[in-house]
């Protein structure tokens, strides 16, 4: 049974000094799908991510990855098992070059990371593979630039290339299109679709256009608990979801304007496309 699900949480609970941020969440991510986690601000999406990758420890509950209990494993071990996350704020190594950023990830699979007596020139062996990865996200010509000098959208692309360098089985993307302009959004969204062809992806995303376009399954979180789950049609038709997003009864007339997916403030975009 657990073979169908790559990731499973059982009665996951996280309490912060009396405040329950994640309340009895049973999440099941099916292998080979793109699964989105949505919900209004403060619903606990990022907390769930931090629990899954053990950047936080759950108060109670169990985590299963490929049927194995990972509740007590540490973050690095989880990454080595094939479950790799990205961060909400673009996570690059700012003062390393773009090429070096990807190489650091590739290097993790080698056995020379503790060799302080070996020349770093040895690492050039990975350059071809690194360039290939950069090419796949359209960053080849920026290989020798420092990551800090890249525009925001390209930093996110670099982050995805770095994550892919580990060849993960399961990708956890925390708001991959957050704060992006219209063009960048479609670039990254295409990228995710491409990447998701032979991998499982779990993502937190505010931009409902992206979610509608990409995800096979959507889980809606509200106040730390699962509100509902299903495909986009099911979820978007659910009046409770509309209420959760708008905070009012959901029988207002739909907004006629084109969905503004360039808006960085997510709830506005969410309203528009629901």
């Amino acid at each position: 049974m657990s073979q169908d699900y790559i990731l499973e949480t059982r009665n996951l609970i996280k309490e912060f000094k009396g405040f329950t941020a994640v309340d009895d969440v049973n999440l099941k991510v099916k292998r080979g799908t793109i699964h989105a986690l949505i919900g209004p601000n403060g619903a606990g999406k990022t907390t769930v991510f931090n629990l899954l990758t053990k950047f936080l420890n759950p108060t109670r509950g169990q985590l299963l990855y490929n049927g194995k209990d990972i509740t007590r494993a540490d973050s690095a071990t989880i990454a080595r098992m094939g479950m790799v996350r990205s961060f909400q704020i673009s996570a690059v190594f700012p003062h390393l070059t773009v090429l070096e950023n990807v190489r650091v990830a590739l290097q993790q699979k080698r056995n020379d990371s503790f060799f302080f007596w070996r020349s770093e020139k040895k690492l050039d062996e990975m350059n071809d593979r690194a360039i290939e990865l950069l090419d796949s996200v359209g960053l080849k010509e920026f290989a020798s630039a420092r990551a800090v000098d890249l525009p925001y959208g390209r930093k996110r692309s670099l982050e995805i290339a770095t994550t892919l360098a580990l060849d993960p089985e399961l990708l956890l993307l925390d708001e991959p299109t957050q704060g992006m302009g219209h063009e960048d959004v479609s670039v990254v969204s295409d990228l995710i679709k491409e990447v998701g062809k032979n991998r499982t992806i779990l993502m937190v995303e505010h931009n409902l256009n992206v979610v509608a376009d990409l995800s096979d399954t959507i889980t809606v979180l509200q106040r730390g608990a699962i509100l509902t789950e299903g495909d986009y049609a099911t979820v978007s038709a659910d009046p409770r979801v509309r209420e959760a997003y708008m905070g009012v009864e959901a029988d207002q007339p739909a907004n006629d304007e084109e969905p503004q997916d360039t808006t960085p403030t997510a709830p506005a975009a969410a309203e528009a496309s629901l």
Partner: peptide, 27 residues
């Protein structure tokens, strides 16, 4: 040599962004 070694490269990554280094599987 330590600074310019595979090990040094990981050290710089940790200095630059520790959480990211962890999420890439480095202990």
């Amino acid at each position: 040599r330590t600074i310019h070694s595979p090990f040094g490269q990981v050290l710089k990554a940790i200095r630059e962004n520790e959480a990211r280094a962890i999420s890439l599987g480095y202990k």
